[in-house]
Amino acid sequence: MKPLSAVALISVLILGALFIYVAEDIPDFGDPHSAPNRGVKLFSIDADEIEADLNQGVIPASLMDKIEETGLPLPIKVEEARGLEGELLEGEWDAFIIPLEKYYALPTTRFGTAPDAPKEQKYYLIMKDGDTLDVYRYAPVVRYWEEGEHETEVPNMVTYILADYRGFDTLGEATVIFTAGVSVILLLRRRGKMPK
């Protein structure tokens, strides 16, 4: 066999072996409870007195200490989680933080008047699993599909993620296309005009 074909075959085999090694831990596509779709698990904690505190809307000190250990922002309030139609979900609580975005500089917005009503954003998900409570951090996609339409007044989710939340990356992509065009001019354009 020629050396190039041998090298190509060996590299394909190595990559295949690597993907088989990795395939055990990759989450399934479209799995609604995987890390990029709902949330990534942070830690577990025993559910002794904490459950009663959470039901009344008070965050217990042991939970705050553990969250502070991870280095993520501290929550300010806890509520019972609600489903898509607004029904109460058993055994799930949401913890909120205030993101401090420059949101309310203009007088009128959809969320009420300005600096008295700061925006609260749900950040942590606390789920009861048998005797322990698992604490997850919500994936960014959850904010995009629950509040994106209210925050940007655009019905199409793909457009507002591309052009608003991650607009700078789209500028980079447009610049890549522009660079490809100018490279074609640099490498291929001939002197003189096109034939008449």
Binding site: Y103, Y104, A105, L106, P107, T108, T109, R110, H150, E151, T152, E153, V154, T159, Y160, A163, D164, G167, T170
Partner: peptide, 16 residues
Amino acid sequence: THMFEENRALGMDLVE
């Protein structure tokens, strides 16, 4: 416009 969110929508249109 006078609304924060509608300004975002119009900005997105310009950019597209």
